[in-house]
Amino acid sequence: MANSYFQFKQFRINQDKTAMKVCTDSCVLGAWAEVEKATEILDIGTGTGLLSLMVAQRSGAKITAVEIDEAAAEQARENFTGSSWKNRIVLEQKSLQAFGKENQQHFDEIVCNPPFFQASLKSPDAAKTIAKHTQELPFEDLLHFVKRFLTPEGIFYLLLPPSEAEVFRKLALNEKLFPVKELQLFTQPNGKHLRTIYAYSFQKKPAEQQSLIIRNPDQTYTAEFAALLRDYYLIF
């Protein structure tokens, strides 16, 4: 059974009310995104609020967090209120589609760990189904929103399993949104390609490709993973 909270160096994530818990790949996204110079950041599908709090720690930006699920939004609100950055984070409890209809703000950074299993079996747990599948947030809707509200020089960070990441990449290219950085995340040397994170921009240029291995063969964390998460994980 997952712990009811996850303690980071500068904040705590309570997760007893949410279907999706703190996971390593989402932590990698939060640490890898270059947000230090951002002024307006959007976190799509915030869940527990993890990504919002991670980017708040490394920036002075105003952060907007959107979450469709009522219980998850309640959890995120609790985590934001308990943080040092509560005055910089605004929570919108609604779908991205509904948020897009009323939003007037443009964002220089957008981060998203979205629902992603397009073809897999649906979970009997309704909240977990919403969190893990594209039925509430089709890739086309996500792409349409990003094209409307990302600033001309902005960056959109998206975490997906490799096959889904490739599907989205092709859709994005058709819409003139270009991958400029790519991080392939592996469980261990010669291990499973777990996730891909793409950084997208309207500026077309050769994509910078990187890889990150989480654990050594003896199951200790790699030096590269430790360096990336050092500002967040208590064990480093």
Rank of each mutant, 00 (worst) to 15 (best):
H106I: 04
E175L: 11
E36F: 03
P114V: 12
W32Y: 04
A226G: 06
N14C: 10
R88A: 09
S163R: 09
T39I: 10
L142V: 08
R230S: 13
E175Q: 07
N216C: 10
C23N: 10
Y5S: 15
A76T: 06
F202M: 05
V35I: 01
F80R: 01
T24F: 01
T220G: 03
P161C: 08
E208Y: 09
N174D: 14
Y200P: 07
Q7M: 15
R215I: 15
N216R: 12
L173P: 08
L177V: 13
Q10W: 10
L143S: 15
I110W: 02
Q7K: 05
K128D: 08
Y232G: 00
T196F: 11
M20P: 04
F139E: 11
N103T: 12
Q97R: 09
A126G: 09
V146S: 11
L183A: 10
F156W: 05
F149A: 05
Y221A: 04
Y221R: 05
K132Q: 04
P124N: 14
C27S: 05
Q10L: 09
R58G: 00
G100N: 12
I63E: 00
L137N: 04
T129N: 07
K205S: 15
V22K: 00
R169I: 15
C27V: 01
T151D: 14
T81M: 08
I155E: 13
T129K: 15
F8A: 00
E67R: 00
E34L: 04
N79Y: 07
A223W: 06
H106Q: 14
L159W: 02
A73G: 07
M20V: 05
T81G: 11
S120R: 14
L234P: 12
A131N: 03
L50H: 00
F11T: 03
E164W: 06
E153I: 13
K9V: 05
R195K: 15
F145S: 05
A61V: 02
A73F: 13
S83W: 04
L228G: 01
I110G: 03
N190K: 09
F186P: 01
L177M: 10
F168L: 15
F139P: 10
Q210R: 09
Y221V: 06
N79E: 06
W85V: 00
E92R: 14
T46L: 02
S163T: 15
S26L: 09
I155T: 12
F149H: 12
L142K: 02
T196V: 08
I13P: 03
R215K: 15
P114W: 11
I214E: 06
A165L: 08
D231H: 01
R12A: 10
E109W: 11
E102K: 14
I41S: 04
Y200H: 04
A199W: 12
